[in-house]
Design a protein around this nucleic acid. Structure first.
Lengths: 113, 113
DNA sequence: CCGACAGGTAACATTTTGGTTACCCATGGA
DNA sequence: TCCATGGGTAACCAAAATGTTACCTGTCGG
């Protein structure tokens, strides 16, 4: 995994567990680390590490409140990737569909992997 | 990294190298493995492994043509994630911006990471 | 004040990732 | 035919990711 923001966000989202954590934070904004951990089988420490990855990608915002850490989902990084990739891929989408269809058909008899 | 399609696509995109490979395939559709490898410092084998990851995520389509392997970028998996996440996050975006702003301001004095 | 509770660190084990070199196979051109 | 070219596999290695347990720190409630 690299250091640029894109890689951090994609890397964070590449784990089903972390995406589930985001779901929890969306459903219960402002909840604590233990609140999140209670939804998973793994140890609280493992959840904390996932939270650190998510926070490093900017997908989670947190602050200490007394002895609790208050967690919030932050959609902004996703929105940013969204905006960039829309403009970048929009020219490929409709235009490419025919080509992709051709490729898929043409490889019908080839070796798959 | 898990096995579900989402994780595969996000995982594939989490590497700047692999995103650059996609750029090459977008610019030179139908090019060969060596064509791609010529754009990078690393060995051809390393590039092939990246291509395998991309193909596993459905982002690259390939077929054998003589002794060459012909490569194409496939935007469909990104489009699918796009569609799903649009509907899933759209309710959070505009609505959340005020909350996020609040959170950011409120944590102004807290520890950052 | 003191114990329970929430969180954080450290050290460790295991698995996955990302790269290498060495070697093999197939094909296409002279 | 024969060899250069493109591709593929195997074995190996270092580093990073992902989980664990053990232990420490700070804060809230009684």
């Amino acid at each position: 995994m690299d250091v640029d923001p894109h890689s951090l966000v994609f890397g964070a989202l590449s784990s089903a567990t972390r995406r589930r954590i985001l779901d929890v934070l969306k459903a219960q904004p402002g909840c604590s680390v233990n609140d999140v951990a209670s939804h998973f089988e793994m140890s609280r420490i493992a959840v904390m590490k996932h939270l650190k990855v998510l926070e490093g990608a900017g997908l989670v915002l947190s602050r200490k409140e007394g002895r609790r850490r208050v967690l919030h989902f932050n959609p902004v990084p996703i929105q940013e990737i969204y905006d960039r990739w829309t403009t970048e891929f929009s020219k490929h989408w409709a235009a490419r569909m025919t080509r992709v269809k051709y490729v898929v058909e043409a490889q019908g008899d080839s070796d798959e992997r």
